[in-house]
């Protein structure tokens, strides 16, 4: 709070890292915020909602897997542009992306979420939870929408979303990391940069602990996505094998 940081990281270094991460986020965020706000009045019409609801379950799963995979490709690019990420060993880069890329997609989702109408930008328009009915996982969808709503209630700025995304991605407690210490150092620096940005933006005390709570919510969402995918795969193994994007299968494979 007095402007001092850990003795090993200078203020200039934190400022530089915060700038690097914010820039990487803007360059790889898939949709600009202004673009999303302009589109927010475009919600799906009832007959379009009916169209999604009457799709066969496997077709809707495939569509969502494609959309998630597209979003994840941007997250991979975000990771690559974070100072220090590409210096980690390749095993750890993969471990972090396997565990964290969907979490970052959920964080980024709050940018594309309209709290007033409880809708999210999906497949060209804003969609409510009913659009995803055919997936057959109402509880997961409700949790994802609730998460987006609670993230929105924090009113994070773009640089705060960027720094929080990097913090989530660089989690040093993921299983199978080979050089845990390196990841830990990078995550600590990112956390300091996040604190620095929060202070600079004059955010209220307690915002950091609210963000920490979101970390466990994200883990639970991803665990539930995996459970729902396993249940789907048990019924439609061939659909997953032949029609799901290869990157999605690599990330969420059994």
């Amino acid at each position: 709070s007095n402007g001092e940081t850990s003795p090993t990281v200078s203020m200039a270094e934190l400022e530089h890292l915060a700038q690097n991460i914010s820039k990487s986020h803007v360059e790889t965020c898939q949709y600009l915020r202004e673009e999303l706000q302009q589109l927010s009045w475009q919600a799906f019409l009832q007959d379009e909602v009916d169209g999604y609801q009457s799709k066969p379950r496997e077709v809707m799963w495939q569509l969502c897997a494609i959309k998630i995979t597209e979003a994840i490709q941007y997250v991979v690019e975000f990771a690559k542009r974070i100072d220090g990420f590409m210096e980690l060993c390749q095993n750890d880069q993969i471990v972090l992306l396997k565990a964290g890329s969907l979490e970052v997609v959920f964080v980024r989702m709050c940018r594309a979420f309209d709290t007033q109408n409880n809708t999210v930008y999906f497949d060209g328009k804003y969609a409510g939870p009913d659009v995803f009915k055919a997936l057959g996982c109402d509880d997961l969808i409700t949790s994802v929408f609730d998460f987006a709503k609670s993230m929105c209630s924090l009113h994070l700025s773009e640089d705060e979303i960027a720094l929080f995304s990097a913090f989530v991605l660089l989690s040093a407690d993921r299983t199978w990391l080979q050089e845990k210490l390196q990841v830990e150092k990078l995550q600590q620096k990112t956390q300091l940069a996040l604190q620095h940005v929060l202070q600079k933006n004059q955010r209220e005390d307690g915002i950091l602990s609210k963000l920490r709570c979101k970390v466990s919510a994200l883990r639970s969402l991803c665990a539930r996505h995996s459970e729902n995918l396993s249940a789907f795969r048990a019924v439609y193994p061939d659909i997953v094998r032949s029609h799901f994007p290869p990157l999605y299968k690599e990330l969420f494979g059994p």
Binding site: E27, T28, Q73, K80, I94, L247, E250
Partner: peptide, 20 residues
Amino acid sequence: KEKHKILHQLLQNSTSPVDL
């Protein structure tokens, strides 16, 4: 490595397959 072929490719490519 074989198990994460696409991730490896994405990490090694200087430009991403997505149109950024």
